[in-house]
Amino acid sequence: MAAFSSAVKIDTLAYSPVQDFGNAYSTFVAQNYGAQQANRIKQGNRQASWWILAFCLVISSLVVFWAKPLLALFSSDPEVIQIGIGYLRIEGSFYALIGLLFMFYGYFRAIDELMISVVLTIFSLGTQVLLAYLLSAVPSIGYIGIWASVPIGWALADLAGLYYLHKKAVKPTD
């Protein structure tokens, strides 16, 4: 529990900027949606995706490679640090997935498709809970299954977000 508590603090701090990026992106999309600038939104989707991926690659690298010194800020217990390193290396390797999910949330809020954001959230969290329960029950996986369930949930919600993006994408009105 101590390892999880410490690692989650680092985890949350690490990907908080992409959550704010998703909020800012929502404003960009909403302004262009209101101005009926579908081409700018499409271009913005590509650029935002690249920026999120680049930022998350840097943050993931820092968290994965600096997991031990970061955890040492919260605990000096070697077992806590070792377990926390495992958590951060699993979660931290996949920050791009949560970054893209925050972008999808912002996009769908901006085009007034709030229910899609809710569906993606429920899908992501529901998948995480179900997989955490199922995977942790396998003795050879144990608590690592709980950690692995989080990026799997993000990935599945991202796939659903891509589906809805193509289905609900703002089209140019020529």
Rank of each mutant, 00 (worst) to 15 (best):
A14F: 05
A24Y: 00
A110N: 06
W51P: 07
Q36C: 11
A160P: 00
I10H: 03
T12C: 11
A72G: 14
L134V: 03
L125N: 15
G142P: 15
A35H: 02
G44F: 01
P172L: 09
Y95R: 12
S124A: 15
R89H: 10
L159E: 01
I85Q: 12
F94M: 12
Y25E: 02
A35E: 05
I152E: 00
Y164F: 12
P151L: 02
G84I: 02
I90V: 15
T12L: 14
L62D: 01
G153E: 01
A35L: 03
L57W: 07
Q19W: 09
A24K: 02
G153T: 01
I146G: 12
Y164L: 03
Q36R: 12
I146D: 03
L13N: 04
A2W: 05
S6Y: 03
L130G: 10
F108I: 06
L130P: 06
W154P: 01
S140P: 13
Q37S: 14
F28Y: 12
G161T: 00
L88M: 05
S117Q: 05
I116C: 10
F65S: 13
I41H: 05
D112V: 10
M115K: 12
S136W: 04
A7K: 07
V29D: 04
L88K: 04
F4R: 11
F74Q: 10
Y33Q: 08
F21T: 11
R109V: 13
I59E: 05
T127A: 11
F55H: 09
L114R: 07
V170L: 03
L13G: 05
F55S: 13
A67I: 00
M1P: 14
I83T: 13
L57F: 11
R40C: 10
A96Q: 05
K171W: 00
I83N: 10
R89T: 02
P17G: 13
I98D: 06
V170M: 02
L70D: 07
A169N: 03
R109G: 11
Y105H: 15
L125M: 12
V138E: 06
D20V: 15
Q31Y: 07
M103I: 00
A157R: 01
I116V: 15
